[in-house]
Structure formats: structure tokens, C-alpha cells
Simulated scan of single mutants.
Amino acid sequence: MSTSPNLQSDIPSQSQPDAPANLKLPSSRFIFWLVLCAMVLLASNMRAPIVALGSIAPVVQGALDISETQIGWLGAVPMLTFALGAFISPTIGKRFGLENTLITMIALLTAGMVIRSVIPTWIGFLSGTLLLTLAIGFANTLAAPVIKQRTPNHIPLITGLFSLTMTVSAGIVAGVVLPLSEQFGWQWALGGWSILGLFALIIWVLLRLRLGSSNHQPIKPLAAGEKAPSHISMWRTPFAWQIAVFMGLQSLLFYTVASFLPSIWLSKGLSAVSAGQMASVFQFMAPVAILSLTWLVNRGRPIQALAIFAASLNVLGVLGLT
């Protein structure tokens, strides 16, 4: 991963289809920093709201007077809405534009964080959780195309910072949300993070106003004698299904552990603060894994072997919790 991007490169013209002909396009340096800030703020909202609930689930359960089954559903909601968001977001993104769709989703995400804090009932908390996790499901799918279209020469750098921000923000929230709830109340501890959503919304609106929307991409005409590329159906490709199942299972495992790890440690006798700290350790191990994986891949290690090794570590980790 490059740490000193070439900021003099120009973004392809098709990523700015809405720009008027007489308007000077922003410089590549400005585009780089604007997209970077937008992605970092978006990433800071994409795991923290989910992880925060896991760290104070017993507090929320007691405050809302709900059953263990109901608190369990709150932990299961993200996987369902992520799947729905991933399925429908490409079509909506193409129809209304990536930036337009993401701005709407950030607004819904922020609204969801506020709703589940200001309406302290089971229905209010469930509604807010459904709203914010569906928005995160959209963002999971649409963030990468924005990076690719807006900063094609800095994809590894911005993608890496995007992933790192998600992990670091989740780790910080997991460790501090319980002390904050004891100091200010659980509603402020969960809803206060919506300020990051407001900052993200402002930056994304600025990005949309300055760069336009990346929908209505022009189609490159075929040269004389050139054949149209054949389209491969992912639905009929076994390898695509294998990847989908593998990624789906690892996402299911991650969000299950992220949601319930503090509760598991509480049941084993740890204090609430120690359980939250364990959740932070879980989140902070992700950058270590990412850097190690990058090093191993660059040294030519086979991807299949690394995937099997990672899955084996998951099995050992789960067994260690029993």
C-alpha cells in the first residue's frame, strides 16, 4: 500500500458527468482529500453503532425491560438488513447515483441512531436499529465504487484507510461506551455518536455539490470490428457461490461475536468494564490481521491456504469462548 499518493493525477472525466461545460473542474488534489475525508467519516459510522450495542446490551435490556430473545433479535438484525442492502443497493445506486444514494443512507443511518436513543421502547429501538443497519448495508456495497470512480489512482490507499477507520472506531466505541453510559446514561452513550453521522452528511453533500453525481455513466462505443464483451452470469458460476458462502459465513461470525462477546464474558464472571475491553481487543486485532495478510500475499502465499488458515483460527477462537 502506497503511503505517498501521487496527488497530481487527474480523475477520469466520466466521474463528473453533471459538471457544467463552463465550470472549472476541481483539482485532483482537492478531489483526493475530499473523497478521503468523506470515506473516513463514513467508515467511522459503519461499525460503531452495532458494536456499541453489544458492549451495553445488558444495560439496554434492563432499561427497555425486554427479554433475552428480544435483545438477541437486535443482535441478529444487522445480518438480515446487510443482506437486503447488498442485494438492492446496486440497482438503486445506478438509478439515482452513488453519491445521491449514499447521502440518503447516511441521513437514514444518523436518524436511526437518534431514534433508538430518543424513543426508549422496544419498537423504537428495533426501528432505529433496522434503519441504521439497512443504511450500513447500502454503504457496504456502494463505498467501493465511489473510491474506484473518484480516485482511481489511489484505490489501495483510500480503501485501506477506510477499513482501518472502521476497525479503530469500532474498537474505541466498544471500550468507552459503557463508561459513557455510566456517566451520562445509555441513551447519550449510544445516540451521541450520531454527531459523526452529521459530519459525514455535510462532507458527502459537499462532495456531491462539487463533483456531481456518478450516475449516467457514458458507454464507450465499440471500435470497428470490436465485439461486445460476453457477460458471465455470477448466479451460474460455482466459484462465485463459494466466495459468497465463505464471505457470508465470516461476516455472520464477525457480527455475531461483535454483538454478543461482552455478554459472553459477563456470563463468565468478568466485570462490565473488562468485558468491554475484551470487545475492544477483538476489534483492534483486525488491523494486525490485515497487515499480516497483506505481507503474506505480497510474498506469494496462496490465497486458498490463507483462507483455510483464517477459518481455522475462527474455529479455535469460538471453541475458546465455550
Rank of each mutant, 00 (worst) to 15 (best):
S4P: 11
Q8H: 14
Q8S: 15
S13I: 13
S15D: 11
P17G: 09
D18T: 07
A19Q: 12
A19V: 11
P20R: 08
P20A: 11
A21T: 05
N22C: 09
L25F: 00
S27D: 11
L34F: 00
L41G: 02
S44F: 01
V51D: 01
A57K: 09
V60G: 03
I66Q: 06
S67G: 06
T69Q: 14
T69E: 05
Q70G: 04
I71V: 14
V77N: 05
A83Q: 02
S89W: 00
R95A: 08
E99M: 09
T101Y: 04
L102V: 10
T110D: 00
V118N: 07
I119F: 08
W122H: 09
G124A: 05
F125H: 07
S127N: 08
L132C: 07
T133C: 14
L134M: 08
A143D: 00
A144P: 01
P145C: 10
P145K: 10
V146K: 01
K148R: 15
K148E: 13
Q149E: 08
I155R: 01
P156G: 07
P156L: 04
L164N: 12
T167P: 00
V168E: 03
S169F: 10
A174I: 06
G175T: 03
G175W: 01
G175E: 00
L178D: 01
P179K: 02
S181N: 09
S181D: 05
F184N: 10
A189L: 04
W193I: 02
L198G: 07
L198V: 15
V205H: 00
R210H: 10
S214R: 02
N215G: 14
Q217M: 02
K227I: 08
P229H: 13
S230E: 10
T237I: 06
T237C: 14
F239K: 03
A240L: 02
V245L: 14
G248C: 11
G248I: 03
G248R: 00
S251I: 04
L252Y: 07
L253K: 04
F254W: 04
T256I: 02
S259A: 15
S259T: 13
S263D: 06
I264E: 00
V273T: 15
S280K: 13
Q283W: 01
F284N: 09
R301P: 03
R301N: 14
Q304W: 12
V315I: 15
V315T: 12
L316V: 09
L319A: 02
